[in-house]
Computed example of a mutant assay.
Amino acid sequence: MVDHTEPTTTHAEWGAGDPTLIVISDERRMRHPLTEDELTIGSGAGCGLRLPDIDPLHATVVHDERDEYVLTLHGEGTMNANPLAAGTHPDDRSETLRTGAQFTAGPWTVVFTREEFADHGRPFAGREGGELSDQPPQPSRPDYAEGESPD
């Protein structure tokens, strides 16, 4: 049983939670695990995830110092995150990926997944809104650069 009297944390080991991109078109479906700190997506020969019918460099996903995965769209496409939401980036072409975030690139839809225990959103699937008085904030994020481990 979870003790709700003490703040909990969703902080996990660096890169934990099997972060993955699910890539879908009308004809294909595939999974691409995010194992690198920077993934380039496009039709170009040097891209880590090569997809036909999109720009040579269409998007970049960067594993940042906060243990978050940040998408930047370089080509045409849509994103479903609110750029003004907490945890996203102010650039309207970038967003912090959370489980279920999706973006498009030509005929492709790409969905980000990461197991809930490692997705650094609110614990217990919390949301911004009226529960803040009932849900204490979680402990500070570990300093991954210093090798700090979550408790």
Rank of each mutant, 00 (worst) to 15 (best):
M1F: 12
V2G: 03
D3N: 15
H4C: 06
H4K: 12
H4W: 06
T5L: 12
P7K: 11
A12M: 02
A12C: 10
E13T: 03
D18L: 04
T20Y: 03
I22R: 15
I22Y: 15
S25D: 01
D26C: 02
E27P: 02
R28M: 01
R28V: 05
R29A: 08
R29N: 05
M30G: 00
H32C: 14
L34R: 03
L34V: 03
T35I: 14
T35F: 04
T35E: 14
D37A: 01
E38V: 00
S43M: 07
S43R: 15
G44A: 05
C47Y: 10
P52N: 07
D53L: 09
I54H: 06
I54R: 07
D55R: 05
D55Y: 06
H58T: 00
A59H: 09
A59R: 01
H63V: 04
R66W: 14
D67H: 00
L71G: 01
T72C: 07
H74P: 11
G75H: 07
E76Q: 12
E76W: 10
T78M: 14
M79G: 11
N80H: 14
N82H: 10
P83D: 13
L84A: 12
A85E: 14
A86G: 12
A86Y: 13
P90L: 14
D92A: 07
D92K: 13
R93W: 09
T96L: 07
R98C: 01
T99I: 00
T99P: 02
A101V: 01
Q102H: 15
F103I: 03
A105K: 09
A105P: 07
T109F: 04
T109D: 06
F112V: 00
F112I: 01
F112S: 00
T113D: 10
E115I: 01
E115M: 07
E115L: 13
E116M: 12
F117S: 10
A118I: 06
A118L: 09
D119L: 10
R122T: 11
P123A: 01
A125P: 02
A125R: 15
R127I: 12
E128D: 14
E128V: 07
G129P: 03
G129Y: 09
G130H: 05
E131A: 12
S133L: 08
S133H: 13
Q135P: 01
Q135V: 02
P137R: 11
P137S: 05
Q138W: 05
P139C: 04
P139Q: 06
P139V: 00
R141S: 09
Y144V: 01
A145Y: 08
G147A: 10
E148S: 08
E148R: 12
E148D: 12
S149C: 02
S149E: 11
D151A: 04
